[in-house]
Design a protein around this nucleic acid. Structure first.
Lengths: 360, 360
DNA sequence: CTGAAAGCGCTTACAG
DNA sequence: CTGAAAGCGCTTACAG
């Protein structure tokens, strides 16, 4: 495996002067000094042209530029980080990167940071405290300049402790959650109010017997559940009743399916279901269809996330959009503002919107 | 924001000796020298205990260990990379990290590498050559020791060129594709044969009029399509006929939906559909259900990927499992073997398996 | 405009 | 067992 069959000048010089040395991965990577030697200038000048700084004679600059290009020179990031005392790296923590919704968030954060010259490193933190601490230590080790925590799963004492221990000085942005720590900023989705409104919406459409299906008791899920309870309380005067079903197995699809079966058994006259997450709703829908229940005529369903999962359902799922896109763009901008020395809002919260499709 | 209200000894020493200096992010990060000073030893000794090397008196070791811990010392990764000439980083390239199937692959790769002391950096490369080159340059800059290319989208000249230019010396693992380059290893899923078998399967179940729906002409999709054509050819003697429908818009769900509508219009007697991807199949299913076509009695459907998308469908989708999990584990092990100086197989290919559910 | 030198935070022969 | 010194690849005052 040869780097380049044409073997440009800097490469040859490196071989001649330094032929016992091996670069990375057994190959030969050129340094700024190799380039300097080939161009007959000092490393300082090479550095200047690499970084587009002024103070280099134009002819010299052109010569250096050409040698740089001929050799496919790429600077060593580690050396740069070390000397610049700045990694221009941010960490994006996700409990499970296979979660589509959170990964979408990571995508938006990454693009936004990219545009501003930062790299985003996506880390699968897992759900336990140990994995989280490990992830944060790793991020500290890489000297990331900021971290975004994706989702309310991270709103807990363990996270606070790990942040205090490993990342006490850098900005932490939490998407859809809050941390009681000075360096933490958050963007919240008003899911509680959103679910409250869903109940209202269903009641206004004549639904009286509403089931609520939820899974893992994350802060976000707890909030939504409260929104449901309060929504039901507010509609009690109109004869609306509600029941809550929980199923926090890993497989939400199956969880929703079985919770719906239970709901159907215990309350055969249920006429609407709200699910904490689209995937639960997809499962609930299956249970309904299996029993030949007419959706939405007999039973209406609403999910949360406005994800592709809901669009795959047939009938297509009505879903509460918790604005992951906007949340992440805003979160990224809070981070950028901080990094540029500004003072972003500690917390911004956004309204959800109900996207009506075919299950209501 | 103070690093630690208790201010352990090394921290105080740093403040005293060095109080004009600011560490990362405006905070104070300790170096090995700060620790050494606090422990009254040399940096060499501190380094030795950090790295668990022998040759340090036990009492000294204990003292250093304690000071390290009290101060939450975390070594600077950039410095380590620079001096060790090894990043223990690998790159995982994905065209779009919002693609669930590919992200799942990334997850498996990452876990496998994690277990072996490597970090995996997931990069969203995009679909165009420029983004790809940019991603690879970035990876080169970080001196990654290996790269995995997720999916056959990367099987093309642009990738070869970018690898040659930026990563000619490190192992490249391609999941579900091949590159004509010496440093590239691949693991292939026998999707062509898989689809061939699907046709056979359908024919054996009495289906005669089979539509095939596909989207973007990636190498993998082209292969599957060939498998279909050959499968139909092989079954012609049994009176089986087939038609191919393409719709390569970004939105596969809608693509499948509209392609199915066309198929239904042109061939009302179609009695089976194979889709290049589950999401297309989900769309096709919607088109069928919308027309009250009985699935699977009147029309059978088979997707590919065995993804959650198929499980959300109702009836639940029969799908060809292309073994993303095994592929990635094997790919990771090829990489690991190479990194440990071994000689992994250049190419391993694996059989697919048809997971029968409710649409056949 | 140009270059020698120091330093970023670590590790590792080498000498004691 | 222990430490001084050199060096990884860069950048940036500083002096010319």
């Amino acid at each position: 495996m040869q780097r380049n069959p044409k073997k440009p000048i800097a490469y040859i010089i490196k071989l001649l002067y330094n032929n016992q040395k091996h670069g990375f991965g057994g190959g030969i990577l050129l340094t700024i000094y190799d380039i300097a030697k080939a161009a007959n200038v000092s490393a300082s000048s090479v550095s200047r042209v690499i970084n587009g700084k002024s103070g280099v004679n134009n002819a010299t600059r052109q010569k250096i530029l050409q040698i740089l290009k001929e050799n496919n020179y790429v600077p060593n990031e580690a050396a740069r980080i070390l000397v610049n005392q700045s990694s221009r790296l941010i960490g994006i923590l996700i409990a499970d990167i296979r979660n589509l919704h959170h990964m979408e968030g990571a995508y938006y954060i990454q693009s936004e940071m990219d545009k501003n010259g930062y790299n985003g490193m996506i880390i699968n933190a897992g759900y336990d405290a140990k994995g989280l601490a490990h992830a944060m230590e790793n991020l500290n080790q890489r000297r990331v300049e900021g971290v975004v925590l994706m989702g309310s799963v991270f709103q807990n004492r363990d996270t606070e402790k790990a942040v205090r221990q490993y990342l006490p000085e850098i900005p932490i942005i939490m998407i859809n959650g809050q941390l009681d720590i000075p360096n933490c900023y958050s963007v919240l989705s008003q899911e509680k109010e959103g679910i409250f409104t869903c109940v209202e919406f269903l009641a206004n459409h004549g639904r009286k017997q509403i089931a609520y299906i939820t899974n893992a008791p994350t802060p976000s899920n707890l909030l939504k559940q409260n929104g449901f309870s309060e929504g039901i309380a507010a509609q009690r005067k109109n004869g609306v009743r509600g029941w809550i079903y929980k199923d926090d197995r890993d497989d939400s699809l199956k969880g929703g399916y079985e919770a719906m079966q239970r709901a159907l058994l215990e309350h055969p006259d249920v006429d609407a279901v709200i699910c904490a997450v689209d995937l639960l709703a997809a499962g609930a829908l299956q249970a309904l269809l299996e029993k030949d229940v007419d959706v939405p005529r007999k039973v209406a369903i609403i999910g949360v996330d406005n994800s592709i999962y809901g669009q795959i359902c047939y009938p297509r799922l009505t879903s509460l959009d918790n604005q992951i896109f906007s949340s992440c763009v805003i979160g990224a901008h809070q981070l950028l503002e901080f990094l540029q020395g500004g003072h972003p809002a500690r917390c911004v919260s956004m309204q959800t919107v109900l996207v009506e499709r075919e299950t209501t």
